[in-house]
Design a binder for these strands. Structure first.
Lengths: 334, 334
DNA sequence: CTGAAAGCGCTTACAG
DNA sequence: CTGAAAGCGCTTACAG
């Protein structure tokens, strides 16, 4: 299994030209069936491997996509986005594209430093995973390179983004609770923290509106400070029968507080989460939650990316992917 | 910020040759200071970006390294290896190398299918993350491409690998327990499951030997079946004063069993783990454990990789990186 | 100090 | 059906 084999070598051995070898190997027309067969056979016999870079240079593509994720999401606790990255790799593979991960440092983000893989023309475009600064996005749009966002959006124009339908999922989840007979339902999450939490809250609110239930301010419970750090959860004076938490980890923390105060779950109160991450199965009882459809989101983002690479002017806007309610044991039918 | 700018454009505008531009931009000698300055200035003004692929093709490098991880490690629960991948990206960056993640499917692994990024010559070598089949490794070695292993080793020859010093870390941890006055110390883990568990067990055993403590078979407690699935942990009839667990998750499970049987931690028995992962802080009390030095391991693996790319004949063998004991609240001084 | 020539390994028109 | 020519954007000897 030598490496140095080129089309030249194959051509020479067969006494033909590289043009013919090139055509045969990529199944282009203009080569006799018999000759084509011979070429392919010899190629595999000699352990020929196509040098895609050479092809790429001729065509002007790199067949690489940069995946950008902000450093702050890559801390000690393995995040959500690492899972996403893997799904993107899988999806890009189907187009024979590779993914190159680029971790955007806080410094580069603030000082508007373009990723070096852009500077070196190593990628045909970027998929941005999660939140990054608005002005950095602005700069990205200025540069002539296709960009698709995943799991994040802003009100900026020309933004192609694939996101979970947070709003609809929480709307459905709250409907489910109401169908189970709950009427006093609290929401746990800081409404001013992230866009996701806001959308989830709004879905919860829509469900209340639709069922003529009043939004009670005392039932909006804070879970984190402005900087996103979790704070101790304060239970309301008058207890609701169900808690809608903006994520599984908060639901997990809430359950600890509830138990510490002598409440039984789901007998005294029901709890639901969002994300279907490790915390949802670490709880006792296991948590009813919403699963984000990562494979589908990655697939769509990859598809958009490839289309934008091929046709720079194509645009898709804001695409919502539905989540799925996972029913476990943390909800009681009243 | 246009993209199409090449050295040709810069040269034409200055009425000089591309050769001179090339030399100036890569700081090679043979260009006057004044001209060099001018060239660099114009380059940045025109928004020139080096086409590394062209350079790469000339030199015969791709400046990409493939990171291979078996599909079974990429399941639902975000694994250890995703963290590793990020550290490798960071380390390779310092050599201006990019990482391309390749998830090796079970099928490809069994049928000895080389990664398509190898077939397409997109990478200069591979870093293998975690366990893969011996015969696949054999094939990898047959192919003329540099390979470095990370967090995994076998007895195969010519294997360059960077691993945690499981043996030494568990030896130190057991010493620590003994220094705290413990004499009856159990080990929790299936000795026939993974190489890591074996090494950790052996470190524990060495510490016992050194302190003239007998290895008691009843104190080797199984935690998983042959297929690696966790089983219910059986406490021994006569209780030890401390448990050395092969990983944090098992320590976490053990704590649940201990508490269910009315034992207080660390008052009735101490527990230690390994990995310093999420389970170590989810426990109550928080777990004393061993932290793997991922950044350092990634750094060394990257360094080896680059050296092997530059000089195919270089080899490093089996390199051990020390772990670090993280002391928390799960151990009591007797 | 500066540049014309050749080449990295392919592909795309264009002839024959 | 087959191939000579030109070119993708660089760099590496080698001349001047």
């Amino acid at each position: 299994m030598k490496s140095g084999v080129t089309m030249r070598d194959i051509a020479d051995k067969l006494g033909i030209s590289v043009v013919t070898v090139s055509k045969a190997l990529s199944d282009k027309e203009g080569v006799g069936e018999e000759l084509k067969r011979k070429i392919k056979e010899l190629a595999s016999e000699m352990g020929y491997r196509m040098n895609v870079m050479a092809k790429a240079m001729k065509e002007g593509y790199t067949y690489n996509i940069g995946i950008i994720v902000a450093e702050r999401f890559t801390g000690v606790s393995p995040s959500f986005y690492q899972q996403f990255h893997q799904h993107i790799v899988k999806s890009l593979e189907e187009y024979r594209y590779s993914a190159i991960l680029h971790i955007l440092s806080a410094q580069d983000e603030e000082q508007f430093v373009m990723p070096w893989i852009y500077q070196e023309k190593k990628v045909d475009g970027f998929i941005i995973l999660g939140h990054i600064h608005k002005s950095y996005i602005e700069m990205l749009h200025q540069a002539d390179t296709p960009v698709v966002f995943l799991d994040f959006y802003t009100d900026q124009e020309r933004m192609d983004t694939v996101i979970t339908d947070n709003f609809y999922a929480m709307y459905e989840m709250t409907n489910y609770l109401i169908n189970c007979g709950h009427r006093k339902i609290a929401f746990v999450g800081n409404l001013y923290s992230t866009s996701s939490i806001q959308d989830r809250f709004l879905g919860y609110y829509k469900s209340l509106l639709e069922h003529n239930l009043k939004l009670d301010e005392r039932y909006i419970i804070n879970d984190r400070d402005e900087r996103g750090r979790f704070i101790d959860i304060q239970l309301p004076d008058e207890m609701p029968t169900a808690f809608v938490c903006n994520c599984d980890q908060v639901a997990y923390e809430l359950m600890i507080v509830l138990k510490a105060n002598g409440y039984k779950i789901p007998d005294d109160c029901s709890v639901v989460g969002f994300d279907n991450d490790i915390f949802s199965t670490l709880c006792e009882p296991k948590l009813t939650t919403v699963e984000v459809n990562m494979p589908e989101m990655a697939r769509v983002a990859a598809k958009f990316m490839i289309k934008k690479v091929t046709n720079k002017s194509s645009s898709f806007g804001r695409v919502l992917i539905k989540g799925k309610i996972i029913r476990r044991e943390s909800v009681k039918k009243l």
